[in-house]
Amino acid sequence: MSAIEIHNLAKTFGALKAVDGVSFTVEAGSVTGYLGPNGAGKTTTLRCLLGLVTPDSGEALVGGRRYTTLPQPVTEVGAVLEATSFHPGRTARNHLRILCTAAGLPVQRADEALEQVGLAEAADKRVLGFSLGMRQRLALASALLGRPKVYILDEPANGLDPAGIEWLRGFLRHLAHDQGAAVLVSSHVLPEVEQTVDNVVIIAKGRLVRQGTLAELTTNGEPAVRVRAAKAAELAPALEAAGARVEPAEDGLLRVHGLDSGAVGQVALDQRVALSELTPERSDLQKIFLELTEGR
């Protein structure tokens, strides 16, 4: 049984098909990125999973059960939704203590969670004065209260500064890889999660467009080699003669398809052209992401 299972989920708001037949699973011990442009249906999927929105059809299960039937949900699932969901006049500690009381957890979990996200010093400050980054940390603290094994985070990197994003990446990897949690994290900004996720699920206009491991997605594209040489104009015809397709880029730079870097180097040696750069180009996720989601 997967930690998170989504089967043929569909939800319509008025005339808008927000989610249209989405299925995927998230396994324990891994971080899955749920990616798509704004308005793709990510948030609706996550809210269906958390029992906040009732789907029209399909199922969204955590540990094989619907969220609303879990006896002690915060001890099984930690969720971070929008960063604004705090009463501005309440202190961070009180916010967490109320959740502890409602969930039947010991109140010291509030202080422990604040410590874990690095907010211990702001515990008695009212949320009113918090930066967006601090609010995100507080939201994460509320997800940690019950020490769950499944984490569901909606755009958790929004509003974090670069140091905060780096911290979040490390934290999510720690939860998944060291503590064996299943982490599902949504984002519309790829670089935020690219270095964190093990698996990727891409959604656009409510429909799933691709899913797989990060490695599968990044090696699927046609490989290319970046070649830079002062005498690029002499090199290009020789490469084409060797069977490559050459795409001239800015001055001196060529993108070569159909030959690996070793073969390109051999052609350059044969032509006695000095190279200043020879790089196999990893087909990057950002490009795939744009290709997959554009025009849909």
Binding site: L52, L81, F86, H87, A103
Partner: peptide
């Protein structure tokens, strides 16, 4: 209404989905 105004209703229903 404070729950809706500040969207704390989300956290409330996450903690107590019934």
């Amino acid at each position: 209404t404070a729950e809706y105004r500040y969207q704390t209703i989300t956290g409330t229903f996450l903690t107590t989905p019934r």
